[in-house]
Design a protein around this nucleic acid. Structure first.
Length: 356
DNA sequence: TCTGGGGTCCTAGGACCC
DNA sequence: TCTGGGGTCCTAGGACCC
């Protein structure tokens, strides 16, 4: 007899760790990776090493602020191909483990489904295998659902394991604020607080009708489920298929001139079309993301008849570009193409956002 | 303090049809 | 002349994740 378990594998300070492997002299020093590595530019921190975090630097923080908080930190540019390569090695290692079903969530994390009587032992085997193959350390959350495994990982960091099941979920998580939950961010936690729901325990016991009234028929019940840690325990290894591809840039100086806007749109579109062409699926929609200075975001989208023709996609996108307000300073421009989905593409099995 | 870039999914509201 | 209710499709906006 064996029991199905969900493991959530999360690499410790992944990006910073990959950089330290290439440059061993950085070990033990505050390292910040973000943007082009220039703290005078508009950019944010992708990852900070534990030494940099001690100065209060965290991911998502403007690079400029991070440099002020940790003046002696080494600031490096983001090198996506290097992290992709390291990530692929990690994921390959996970897939090699006997009985493991692997669902990749991002560069540095994955769910692993396995049948075992000793999930901690299996977790340690994973950690050892990943370390031997890649020299990278990871933490492993163990759970009886995806949500519990995911939330367990934090308690295992760094380099450890932690188990969260129906038996200890409320004991461990109950007193924590709702924002600690994966899927509850600052906006939702504030709206929950306005309903008198402060903690995970409050959310687990909340009236489903009230939640549905506030958040809708799908998200309302989903938040309550999150509070209880319930939900799917199925790790799905069917390959992920992108709905679309997009590129965006934040201009270091806001742009205004129509010619500059169009040139920026065309450049982004070239990259998007290259990504789309690599997929071999027709484009069925185009979109624009516009951020007017200082920080007003708009989106424009437009469905189109399925096409492989670049000129059509360009023309349709330019129709949207024509709707950008002339003379209004532009801080960010994004271009996106939606593709037709194959019939056998993976269906999201929870309302969770972000790729699974 | 001042907010990147890659994504996904949900909701509301309007248009349109029967 | 004034008008229901259900369904679907589309766009815009919002929220979240890594």
């Amino acid at each position: 007899m064996t029991t199905p378990w969900v493991l959530h594998v999360d690499l410790d300070q992944f990006i910073a760790a990959v950089e330290v492997l290439r440059r061993p002299e950085l070990a033990g020093k505050p390292v910040i990776v973000g943007g082009r590595g220039d703290p005078t530019e508009r950019a944010v921190v992708s990852t900070a090493s534990y030494e940099a975090r001690a100065f209060g630097v965290g991911s998502g923080m403007p690079l400029r602020i991070a440099a002020r908080k940790a003046p002696d930190a080494i600031i490096l540019p983001v090198d996506a191909p290097a992290y992709t390569a390291a990530s692929e090695e990690v994921m390959a290692t996970l897939r090699e483990q006997p009985g493991a079903v692997v669902q990749v969530l991002g560069w540095d994390e994955a769910f692993v489904g396995v049948q075992t009587e000793d999930p901690e032992a299996f977790a340690r085997e994973l950690q050892t295998a990943v370390l031997e193959r890649t020299q990278l350390h990871c933490s492993v959350g163990i759970g009886d659902t995806l949500v519990r495994a995911k939330n367990a990982t934090d308690f295992g960091k760094p380099r450890g394991t932690f188990r969260l099941t129906a038996d200890n979920w409320l004991e461990v998580m109950g007193e924590r604020p709702t924002i600690a939950l994966w899927g509850v961010g600052s906006k939702i936690s504030k709206r929950l607080a306005a309903l008198g729901i402060q903690t995970v325990d409050d959310l687990a016991r909340a009236d489903p009708e009230i939640l549905a009234g506030e958040f809708g028929p799908k998200m309302g019940p989903w938040y309550r489920q999150l509070g209880r840690g319930d939900g799917s325990a199925v790790v799905d290894d069917t390959p992920w298929v992108a709905r679309g591809h997009g590129r965006e840039t934040t201009f270091q100086q806001n742009i205004v001139e129509r010619a500059d806007v169009e040139a920026a749109a065309r450049e982004l579109l070239t990259q998007v079309l290259a990504d789309v062409a690599a997929e071999g699926r027709p484009v069925v929609g185009v979109g624009l993301k516009i951020r007017y200075a200082p920080f007003v975001t708009k989106t424009l989208v437009h469905k189109i008849p399925a096409t492989f023709d670049r000129d059509t996609v360009i023309a349709e996108t330019m129709k949207l570009v024509d709707r950008i307000e002339p003379g209004r300073p532009l801080r960010l421009l994004g271009v996106r193409a939606e593709m037709a989905m194959p019939d056998d593409a993976r269906e999201g099995h929870t309302p969770m956002r972000g790729g699974w």
